[in-house]
């Protein structure tokens, strides 16, 4: 998505008249940015502030506050491994370690080819399927370390 297309999207969003207050469009606008760009850059925030008529810092505050918005470049696929208590008790940390080992990066980092970002994530409400992993919007439940390469291959991982 180019910045110009993005501006059109935000204008479309604003004309939906979903909210009676322009500030309320900030989060939906940031979601559009999060899904279409590798990172929410200052340039994107300027566009949002401009179209919505809000202050620049209001957009940056929102982008920095919420854990699911990335202001640093992220990979095409975000692997979120739950490490909160229920998943931890059932081996969530081993799964995370396995992912990190296979991709050769630490939690929070992105692979060199820009394909994967791994995140040690907080509870995603999938505790009945602990340990749980999500890749973008897809869920993987009751994951075992043996299944990790299979998950990665599904998303184009070139490793063995």
């Amino acid at each position: 998505m180019t910045l110009e297309e993005f501006r059109k999207e935000i204008e479309k969003l604003k004309s939906s008249r979903k909210y009676l207050y322009n500030g309320s469009y900030i989060l939906p606008a940031l979601w559009i940015a999060e899904k279409n760009f590798s990172a929410i850059t200052p340039e994107i925030m300027r566009t949002i502030a401009d179209v919505l008529g809000v202050r620049l810092i209001e957009v940056e505050e929102a982008a920095e506050f919420y854990a699911m918005f990335h202001t640093k470049p992220k990979g095409k696929y975000i692997i979120r491994v739950c490490t909160n208590l229920s998943c931890m008790l059932r081996g969530g940390e081993e799964i995370l370690e396995k992912f990190c080992d296979l991709l050769g990066i630490s939690p929070g980092e992105t692979t060199e080819d820009g394909l994967f970002t791994i995140e040690a994530f907080e509870c995603m409400g999938l505790c009945d399927g602990a340990p749980a992993v999500t890749v973008n919007e897809e869920r993987f439940l009751n994951v075992t370390p043996e299944e990790v390469p299979k998950i990665l291959k599904k998303f184009g991982w070139k490793g063995k």
Binding site: P42, M45, I57, E58, E64
Partner: peptide, 15 residues
């Protein structure tokens, strides 16, 4: 404004 949250929060103008 305030960027980030919790113990990492800090004060800054835009960018």
């Amino acid at each position: 404004g305030i960027l980030r949250r919790g113990y990492q929060a800090y004060i800054s103008p835009f960018n």
